[in-house]
Design a protein around this nucleic acid. Structure first.
Length: 479
RNA sequence: CGGGGUGUAGCGCAGUUGGCAGCGCACCGCGUUUGGGACGCGGGGGCCGGCGGUUCAAGUCCGCCCACCCCGACCA
């Protein structure tokens, strides 16, 4: 059961987040440092997110499969940048069945290597291509500083791995899946995102190009919420993924991978949450509507429950995820706060007065305070509620977008950039050099988040060095 | 790994010059309550992070160790 208030976002955002995750029963700390237990409420949220993504993966021609969690250590040594990127965070199994293993096994931090190995066995001809496989699972990275959902040692995700005959096709796939992520984030999670390319220093180890969707959290920090990588022939060469083309010439494939993790849950919490607690978008909320019956005595209870039971059955029948909170040991006021903390988008109250008048009270989670309460007739309630849920979904996206846009600045010079990234994002020209990027990071802790696909048509001067710049980039402090 | 901090009930903490280990919340029982976080009464719960030392006596003083948290370097 929930208890007590949270710290406010303003006084301590990090602590607000930590306590909320636990009080809302999304996740808890496991006995192993850096690992988390995803509790049923959090996992249901993840399942709803999985459903939205999985449907989109299937619609774009992908199939699911499962690859092993253990990978021979030697596989990681085959792609130079990949090793360098991942070796510091590998967990390695050295013993099995009481014996020291001949070759140590890596607990997968990501599966490019083992999947690459399998693809080289499966792909022989242009007729075998493209291969479009996704895997739902978990991976392990030995993280030093962890935070529930945002960075844990083990985390749950999906990783798609594809192989194509041509570079063009592989690049298209990379962009297509980024679009899928963006559509999911915007439509289902009500999180506005920018799509674009990562700078060389920010890209995935072993990728030729990494793309990402970036979102602004409630504390104005950035969160990479999904990534899609184009590998060119890097992994194909490392793992010998070759095919005979129509001219009978042996060619290396072009491969991609793309992933979205339970980190997205962290994004949902931090984008929408407020001082009252979580605020979940109806499309992914484990519970969309909570029904709170109100009564003072047994006589009232029997009259109220009759109506409440009918409403429950009607809404459930209409496919709405509804929960009846008929706990007798806590007061209605407690229940209101409890479910608001858990982010349930809509609350229905039914009391003796409603029974008399044929009405119910509705309270929207997306509008703060009691002002959002309204009274509507019991008749045709399923329709009213469905419409309201759609409206809440839209209103949450609108609020998040307004907040984000209000906190993106367009600094005129470097001094102003340094100022604005303390508490917001900067959108500025960047010459593309590592030096300028490093200088900003060094002096402000802000990194280049993404070079958006949407660019002005003209060119400008780099906000750092003043040289010619062809691209504008978002600078922000990131999680 | 560098800098700072904290370890006492499930959680948050207090514990004075060394002298019976406490408070709030949570939990259990009974009763009254219930339209925005109810209340009364009664209860259960402790290797005071660990080891060693000083002392008649250590949560408290001394030494060593361990763990965790925060800030940096690395990361979806």
């Amino acid at each position: 059961m929930a208890e007590e208030k949270l710290p406010t976002q303003k006084e301590n955002f990090a602590e607000w987040y930590n306590q909320l995750v636990q009080k809302a029963e999304l996740a808890d700390y496991a006995p192993v440092r850096g690992c988390m237990v995803v509790r049923p409420y959090g996992w249901t949220l993840w399942e709803n997110m999985q459903a939205g993504l999985d449907r989109r993966f299937k619609e774009t021609g992908h199939v699911n499969a499962a690859f092993p969690i253990l990978i021979p250590l030697s596989f990681f040594e085959k792609e130079k940048e990949h090793v360098e990127g991942f070796s510091p965070e590998l967990a390695i199994v050295t013993h099995g069945g009481g014996e020291k293993l001949e070759e140590p096994l890596v607990v997968r931090p990501t599966s490019e290597t083992i999947i690459g190995y399998m693809y080289s066995k499966w792909i022989k001809s242009w007729r075998d291509l493209p291969v479009l496989i996704n895997q739902w699972g978990s991976v392990l990275r030995w993280e030093l500083r962890t935070k529930l959902f945002l960075r844990t040692a083990e985390f749950y995700w999906q990783e798609g791995h594809t192989a194509h005959a041509t570079e063009e096709e592989a690049r298209e796939e990379t962009y297509r899946m980024l679009d899928v992520y963006a559509d999911f984030a915007i439509t289902d999670a009500a999180i506005p995102v920018f799509k674009g390319v990562k700078s060389d220093t920010e890209k995935f180890a072993g990728a030729q190009m990494s793309t990402s969707i970036e979102a602004m959290m409630g504390d104005k920090r950035a969160l990479q919420s999904g990534t899609s990588h184009f590998f060119g022939q890097n992994f194909a060469k490392a793992f010998d993924i070759q095919f005979l083309d129509k001219n009978n010439t042996l060619q290396y494939c072009h491969t991609t991978s793309w992933g979205l993790s339970t980190r997205m849950i962290g994004a949902v919490i931090m984008v929408h949450g407020d001082d009252q607690g979580l605020k979940l978008p109806p499309k992914i909320a484990p519970i969309q509507v909570v029904l709170v019956p109100i009564y003072k005595n047994l006589d009232e209870k029997s009259r109220v429950m009759e109506v409440a039971d009918n409403i429950f059955a009607e809404l459930k029948g209409a496919g709405i995820r509804i929960k009846m909170d008929d706990r007798d040991e806590v007061t209605p006021g407690f229940k209101y706060n409890d479910w608001e903390m858990r982010g349930v988008p809509l609350r229905i109250e039914v009391g003796p007065r409603d029974v008399e008048k044929g009405s119910v009270a509705l309270a929207r989670r997306d509008i703060p305070g009691r002002e959002s309460k309204s009274f509507v007739p019991q008749a045709d309630l399923a329709r009213t509620v469905s419409q309201l849920l759609s409206e809440i979904q839209a209103s949450m996206l609108r609020q998040a977008t307004e907040f984000r846009d209000a906190n993106i600045h367009h600094p005129k010079d470097y001094a102003e950039l340094k100022e604005v990234v303390k508490d917001g994002w900067a959108f500025a020209w960047w010459c593309g050099s590592r030096e300028c990027e490093a200088k900003v990071k060094e002096e402000t802790k802000a990194t280049t988040r993404v070079i958006p696909f949407d660019q002005p048509i003209d060119t400008g001067k780099c906000i750092v060095c003043g040289e010619l710049a062809e691209k504008k980039v978002y600078f922000a402090r990131a999680y």
